[in-house]
Simulated scan of single mutants.
Amino acid sequence: MADVALRNISKRFGATEAVRELSLTINDGEFLVLLGPSGAGKTTTLRLITGLEKPDAGSVMIDGRDVTQDPPGSRDIAFVFQQYSLYPHLSVYDNLAFPLRSPARRVPEPIIRKRVEQTADLLHIASKLNNRATRLSGGEMQRVAIGRALVRDPSIYLMDEPLSSLDAKLRAELRLELKRIQLELGSTILYVTHDQVEAMTMASRIGVIRDGRLLQLGTPREIYESPADSYVASRLGTPQINFLSAGLLSDVPVPPGTETVGIRTEHLRLAARNGGGMIGRIHRVEHLGEQNHVHLDYKGKMLVTLADPHQPLHAGQEVELHLQNPLCFDRAGQRLPAMAH
């Protein structure tokens, strides 16, 4: 494995600036996730690292070596795509062996067999090695696609939303598998996704990207608890963070310059009316087993929070709202430091 560094990378397609002066280091053995919506520049960043695109400015370093002008084949990178990209006429074994039979590598067949069998064991598909790729489930096909990258042992694995086409149960299963494999092998992985759950559960660090710019880089806990701005705050958390104008919260102490207050579920507690200043009216309650999603109206703004399923709440009920350490943002959306107690 190796570390990979991007230094002030920029890439434009016509009038569209896909990546803007992006600097990022993926450390040896790290699982780094780029999180952002479609069009944020995630895939373009991967293509710049592989050499499938050339940057307009900046450089790509792999293990301390400048590879910006090197062709893709010489960069020792494995790419896992969103689509499975398997050879349908080949068996699982031959699909896994294919990268090792490339003329550029010429790995002896006994070593190929050993690597394929080890990779199949790691991915729990050893019993499928003789199956045609067309006789696999979606989850098995994606395991084979991941296995074709793993069998090579490259400097870094680049993964472009490889789980997004799977159903929810399979996605959850393969998230755990990928993280387990990464820890077992000590692999360096750069993984891109729009899914906050994938980012939170798998990443050593998360980079939040928007319009080609890296907005914040940190551990999942840092990104969640100390977002740099309101956009980063909105990318993590279920239910999504609530935003209220500071003018609606006259009884809540906020730092000078606060325009918007961000309220996550843990910042908001609901209680029976008892003379408190903040009163909301429950719009509806969604019962989800271990927790309830409560939708409520506060001064014409809809808020969503979590509540204990045993707390007696119902539509039309008025409740007191108690805020605890919410996030505060200025007019530009930048996070303001919390007030000292």
Rank of each mutant, 00 (worst) to 15 (best):
V107H: 03
D195Q: 11
D167E: 07
G41S: 02
A199M: 08
T305M: 05
V294S: 10
R7C: 00
F329T: 07
Y231E: 10
A315Y: 04
P162Q: 12
P326Y: 01
I241M: 11
R335H: 12
L183T: 15
L158I: 02
R12H: 14
L34G: 12
L163H: 13
T50S: 13
R143M: 05
V261W: 07
G64D: 11
Q69S: 15
T193R: 13
S127F: 00
D330F: 04
A332W: 08
D229W: 12
V19R: 00
T119C: 10
G147C: 12
T44Q: 13
Q82L: 02
N325G: 05
L129M: 03
L170I: 14
S127E: 15
E198A: 07
I112S: 04
L268K: 01
T260N: 01
P312G: 12
H89P: 05
H267G: 05
L174C: 03
E21V: 01
R205M: 00
P103A: 11
G138Q: 04
Y84D: 01
A78W: 02
L178F: 02
I77Q: 03
S187W: 00
G212I: 12
R132N: 07
Y84C: 01
K11E: 10
I206M: 09
V254H: 11
P154H: 05
N292M: 08
D76V: 00
E286G: 08
A168W: 03
P239W: 05
T119R: 04
P108Y: 10
P220D: 06
L123M: 14
M159S: 06
L123H: 11
P220Q: 06
K301W: 02
E161V: 13
T305S: 07
I146L: 14
T265P: 00
N292Q: 13
Q324M: 11
R284L: 15
P55Y: 06
V294A: 06
Q317N: 02
H267F: 04
L100D: 04
M278F: 12
V60C: 02
M302S: 13
T258A: 05
P154R: 09
T265M: 01
P103N: 11
F81S: 12
H310R: 11
R20I: 07
L321I: 14
L170C: 05
P154I: 13
R273E: 15
A172E: 07
T219V: 10
A233I: 08
P162M: 11
H322Y: 12
E109Q: 14
E109S: 12
I111V: 15
L129I: 04
V60M: 03
V116E: 03
S155V: 08
Q317T: 09
V232M: 10
A57H: 02
H283W: 03
G51N: 08
P108I: 08
Q69I: 04
L249Q: 08
S74M: 13
L123V: 09
N27L: 14
L136F: 07
A145L: 04
S23Y: 08
L52I: 09
E140T: 03
L303F: 11
L24E: 02
V208T: 06
L323I: 12
I125R: 06
H287G: 00
K11Y: 12
R135F: 12
Q334I: 04
G147E: 06
M200I: 14
A149G: 09
R143K: 14
A97D: 09
